[in-house]
Nucleic acid binder design. Structure first.
Lengths: 158, 158
DNA sequence: GATAAACTGTTTACTAGATTAACAATATGG
DNA sequence: CCATATTGTTAATCTAGTAAACAGTTTATC
C-alpha cells in the first residue's frame, strides 16, 4: 500500500481524503480562535460592558494618562478617525476627559476620570476572569508560549 | 529598593510604569496578530485575489465536493445567510456550480468546476507562500506549537 | 395520511468595525 | 514668511457579519 502523507487519512467508507487544507493555515486558525475569544469576551462583560476595542482604549488611557488621540490610535494600530467614536463613548460614559494641553492647542490629551480608573480596574478583573476560564485548558507555560509566538507575528507591526 | 513585579519597569524619567495591561491579554494579542496575517494575505493575493473567507469556502468545496450550503456554513462557523454572497461570488467567477440533488429538492450541492479546482490549487500555493514568508521567523516546531495551542482554543467551537 | 415541526437557501434590514478623503485649526522647519 | 506637517473631526464608503422573515420542502408524530 502506498504511504499516506500526514495530511491524508481514511474515512469511514475508506475513500481517501486529505485533512482539509484550511486547517494547515495559521491565518485560518488564528481567525477561528480569535472569534471564540472575542465572543466570550462580550458574553463575559455583558450587555453594557465594553466592546473589546473600547476596553483596550480605556486600558491605555488609564495607563498612559495624557496620551493624545493620535498617540492612542497609533498604539492601537487604528486610524485617528476611527478612534473618535471610541473616545466619544468613553467620554460620554464619564470615564475620561478630553483636556487641552498648554503648549499645543491642536491636541486634547486624554485623562481618565476617577470613575474611569475604578471602572477600568473592575473591567480588567472581569476580562482576566473570562480569559482564565476560557483558557483553563492551557497551562501557564502554554499561555506564555502562545503569547511569545503571537509576539513573533506582532513583530511585523509598525 | 523595593522589588519590581515583572510587569513593572523604569521609564527614562525614572517614573514607575507597569507594562501595559493590554499586552497581558491573549485576546488582544490574538487580534493584533490576526490583523497582520490577514492584511498580508490580502496583499499577497493581490487586487483580484480572494478575500480570506472566499478562499476558505473554495477550499472546502474543492475538498468536500457536493457539500451543501448549510453544511459549508457550519464548517466555516458562519450563518447560512452570510454564505450566500460568498457562493454567489465563487459561482459568478465560474469556480463552482450549485447543482441539485436527486433525493432532496431543498438543497443545492456545491461542486467545484475544473477551473475552480485549478484556481484553488494556485491560490493555495500563493497562500502557503505568503504564510511561509510572513512566518519565516518561526521554526517549524514553533508553527506546530502555535497550531496546537490555537487548536486548544478552537476546542470551544460548536 | 394529516398536521406539526424542522430544515434549506434566500432576501432584507441592520450593526460593528474599519478605511479613505477632506477640512479647519494649529504648529514646525527652512 | 511660507510651505509642510500634524491634530482632531466629519462624511462617505466598505466589509463582514448577524437576525428575522419567507417560501419551498422534508421529516416526525399522531
Amino acid at each position: 500500500m502506498a504511504s499516506l502523507r500526514k495530511t491524508e487519512r481514511r474515512t469511514e467508507d475508506e475513500s481517501l481524503v486529505e485533512t482539509p487544507d484550511l486547517e494547515e493555515f495559521i491565518g485560518y486558525n488564528l481567525k477561528r480562535a480569535y472569534v471564540i475569544v472575542q465572543a466570550d469576551f462580550r458574553r463575559a462583560l455583558g450587555e453594557d460592558g465594553f466592546a473589546p476595542r473600547v476596553f483596550s482604549a480605556l486600558s491605555l488611557v488609564v495607563q498612559y494618562p495624557n496620551v493624545t488621540q493620535s498617540g492612542l490610535a497609533r498604539m492601537l494600530g487604528i486610524e485617528r478617525s476611527g478612534l473618535v467614536a471610541i473616545v466619544d463613548e468613553l467620554e460620554g460614559r464619564g470615564l475620561l476627559k478630553r483636556t487641552h494641553v498648554p503648549g499645543d492647542r491642536r491636541v486634547q490629551a486624554l485623562v481618565p476620570t476617577d470613575k474611569g480608573s475604578k471602572v477600568y480596574t473592575e473591567a480588567r478583573a472581569a476580562v482576566r476572569a473570562h480569559e482564565d476560564a476560557l483558557l483553563s485548558n492551557l497551562s501557564e507555560d502554554e499561555k506564555a508560549t502562545l503569547m511569545s509566538l503571537l509576539g513573533k507575528i506582532r513583530a511585523h507591526e509598525g
